[in-house]
């Protein structure tokens, strides 16, 4: 017997993500899904951001890692509430994992929720978590052709942070070339070169973007991203 199905294999995840999105919207919460390779500086970016803007916004953080709660402990030092998810080998977070931990936050007492995904440039991209935007991070030690090799993330992300620019003199990374590939994947991609080391560099532009995105979410109820990246 032939049976015609016609269903997305990600529909269970997408359905749950949509429910999460409504919960987040009801609380006027801006939710950002942070995606990069391991070691690109996601946690360092969060430490800097939460410390700098802690007086301005109430932050929550969900940390996704294969093992350990090292990252949750790192970001909690800023005073933000952090919850760790361990995937025990799983290469990405999915919306069911987010739903399981969301009850540990008082969502109506938060302004911005960061979800730090498992370090991986491929798998996390396919799983909608109910976020407003995906934020991509790429560090200058990784090679400037990464957006060409892994275009899907850069196609879907709203912002690309090019991190570790303080060590640009010591690596063969061409900022313009990386930006060119990334913009080819998404024409209106916002590209911000930053360093999260020491005093930090270029982070004011990122903070301004956060302020604008938060204000847009509060007044319009949504930002712009279509998370599958088609018919945008």
């Amino acid at each position: 017997m032939e049976i015609s199905i016609g269903r997305s294999l990600l529909e269970a995840n997408d359905r749950e993500a949509e429910e999460l999105r409504q919960v987040f919207a009801a609380n006027g919460l801006l939710v950002l899904n942070l995606i990069s390779s391991p070691g690109a500086g996601k946690t360092s970016l969060l430490e800097k951001t939460l410390t700098a803007l802690g007086g301005e916004f109430r932050f929550g953080v969900i940390e996704g890692d294969l093992q350990t709660d090292n990252d949750a402990r790192r970001v909690e030092k800023s005073g933000a509430k952090a919850v760790q998810i361990n995937t025990h080998g799983g290469c990405h977070l999915d919306s069911g994992m987010i739903r399981e931990v969301i009850g540990r936050f008082n969502l109506d007492e938060l302004d911005i929720l960061f979800i730090e995904n498992v370090g991986n440039l491929v798998c996390p991209v396919e799983f909608d978590l109910g976020e407003d935007c995906k934020i991509a991070l790429l560090s200058v030690t990784e090679g400037d052709d990464k957006p060409e090799k892994y275009p899907r993330l850069f196609h879907l992300a709203e912002v690309l942070l090019l991190n570790k620019i303080d060590i640009l003199p010591y690596v063969d990374f061409d900022l313009e070339r990386a930006a060119g590939f990334a913009r080819a994947a998404r024409r209106d991609l916002k590209i911000l070169p930053v360093s999260c080391r020491g005093e930090g560099h270029g982070l004011e532009a990122w903070y301004d973007w956060l302020r604008q995105a938060r204000a847009a979410k509060k007044t319009l109820g949504k930002t712009t991203t279509n998370h599958r990246g088609v018919e945008r």
């Binding site: 017997m1 032939e2 049976i3 015609s4 199905i5 016609g6 269903r7 997305s8 294999l9 990600l10 396919e126 196609h155 913009r183 080819a184 024409r187 599958r228 990246g229 088609v230 018919e231 945008r232």
Partner: peptide, 19 residues
């Protein structure tokens, strides 16, 4: 060269089965 809009091609779709 660049900046084309993706109309489709992002799906992972269970089309049909035989049983």
């Amino acid at each position: 060269e660049f900046f084309h809009q993706a109309l489709s091609g992002a799906e992972i779709f269970f089309e049909r089965m035989e049983a």
